[in-house]
Each structure stands twice: as structure tokens, then as C-alpha cells.
Design a protein around this nucleic acid. Sequence first.
DNA 1: GATGAAAGCCAGCATGA
DNA 2: TCATGCTGGCTTTCATC
Lengths: 155, 155
Amino acid sequence: MSKRTFDYLDIQILNILQENGRISNADIARKVGKAPSAVLERVRKLERKDLIQGYEAIVNHKAMGLALTAFTQVYTDEPAGSFNTGRELAKIPEVLEVHYTAGQAPYLVKVRAEDTEALQKTLAKFGAIASVRDTNTTIVLTTVKETRGFPLQND
Amino acid sequence: MSKRTFDYLDIQILNILQENGRISNADIARKVGKAPSAVLERVRKLERKDLIQGYEAIVNHKAMGLALTAFTQVYTDEPAGSFNTGRELAKIPEVLEVHYTAGQAPYLVKVRAEDTEALQKTLAKFGAIASVRDTNTTIVLTTVKETRGFPLQND
DNA sequence: GATGAAAGCCAGCATGA
DNA sequence: TCATGCTGGCTTTCATC
């Protein structure tokens, strides 16, 4: 199974949009050497097939007063295979990521807050979830790299 | 110190662009009830002040064959305060994030790979960095939430 | 800072290959 | 799946407030 549903042109377009999500369709067309209408059709198809899940501005969180990043391991009383705790954690806006892992702690959570005081309040929200047994937080001192993108290749 | 360099209108614009990075300037103007030219000036200024650091398409990495996410703790022989190891780690394309932390392991690294075999190759690259003493990897089974954005408020 | 007018440019669609 | 041509709407600049 699993026939490739995308070709080299798609990968080119994805890489361009991954680097600059606000580039005009006409500019993409110039870069890949195709007519704008053809490129637009590709982009729409990539969106429809959910290969492109959206576009977002990268906001400088430090400048916005969100200086603190932390990773919290969350231990639960939940039976394996249930993600209820994860869904509850995901509802908290300061929680950027929730991963269910194969490690010691079932959940690894990425949190962003104003300062340690705000972080404390967020961790209190974790504790308010009934199935949460314990948490273990690692504070980030410096972030060296933080991307979402990955230079895609044609295999 | 620290006079606010942005107002409520800026926060509105940032939230809109954080949610939909490809919305047209005219649509932002309609949403905030201002003239397009005024909004464009704001956006340009936010970009110049580096409050907006860029725009990116959110690519479905699973559909692109990058099914595996992992978090690796990296132990080093490096003196505290030096980020050379972090910079080396950041150069590896499969490494999405590098955080220097206050935890037991100096670095926490987020990795994305095709499969366990590809992950192994990436971890081998970590080992090739002279100052890396040891690594400890946690495999992600399911990602419940993965955002970058944060609903900004007017304090 | 914000506005409105004006020029050029782009998105989006229809059509044809 | 791509290219061409078209139209309405958009982006962007600038004089003005």
C-alpha cells in the first residue's frame, strides 16, 4: 500500500511555504517555473489533502512577555491507552504541546508562561485534573533552536 | 524600564496572524475595523521590531513520512555557560528544538525522523559531537497537541 | 499614527489543450 | 495537470490630516 501522493513539485512548494508562509502565489510560481494557476491548484490540493494543515505567524514570545519555557513530565493514574488526561492538559492555553510517550512518565508537556509565578499557576491547573498523580518540571534556561519545519527531500 | 511597545490593536493583529498566517491584509483590516493601509503599516512595524519573526506553513509531517517524534536528553562534558554543543546539535536538520535546561541533563532536544532506524542514525550524529557524553531518548507514541501559538491577552 | 485615492499587481475562475 | 486570458479585488504608496 501507500502510493506516493505527492511529487517533486509538491515538495518544492511545501519547502517554500514552510520557509515563508506568506509568500504570494505568483512568487511561488516564479520560483518553481510554473504558471500561477497551476501552483495555486497544487497548494489548494495540498491543503485539501491536509498535507498543509495551516499557516501561522511566528510570534516572538519573549518580546510579548512570555519569557519562560518549561517541560513537565506528568504521571497519571489513568489506564494505558486512554488519553483523557492528555485531552484535559491540551485544553490549557499555556500548554503548547502534549505528548503521550513510551517513557517513565506517560505525558511530556511543553509549557510557556510569563514567569515562575505564572508557571506555578499553570502547574496548579495540572494538579486539578483528577487523574494526574504527580508532575516533574524542567525549566528551560536558553532555547538554542525552535522550529517546526523540516527540509523535505525527494527521498 | 520596559515601556509597552504594542497596544491592543497590535495584539489583535498578532492573534489573527497566529491563527491564520495567510489571511489577506484586507481581511485583517475588516476584522479589526481599520483601513487596510493602517493595518499594513502595523504589520510591517511588527515585523521590523521582530515581534513577528516570520510565517510558516504547518506541514503534516506524518503524511510526509516523518512519523516518529522523540525527546532526547543530552549529557555533555562542556563547561556550564558554553553553548557549543547546543549549536552543533542545532545544525542537524532532524533536530527541531534544542533547549539548554536547568535539569539533570544540560540539553533537551526534540527530534523528528522517518522511523526508528532513521532515529538511530540521528542519535549517532549526536554521539559524533565530541562534547556529548551520553543521551537518553524518550519516544513519543501519540501527540495530543502541538502548537506554537498562545492566545495573547491585553494583560 | 490613520486615512483615502490611485496604480499596479494578484487571486481565482473559465476555457482549452 | 498545465497554460492563457480576464476581472474584481487586493496590496502598496503617498499626500494629507
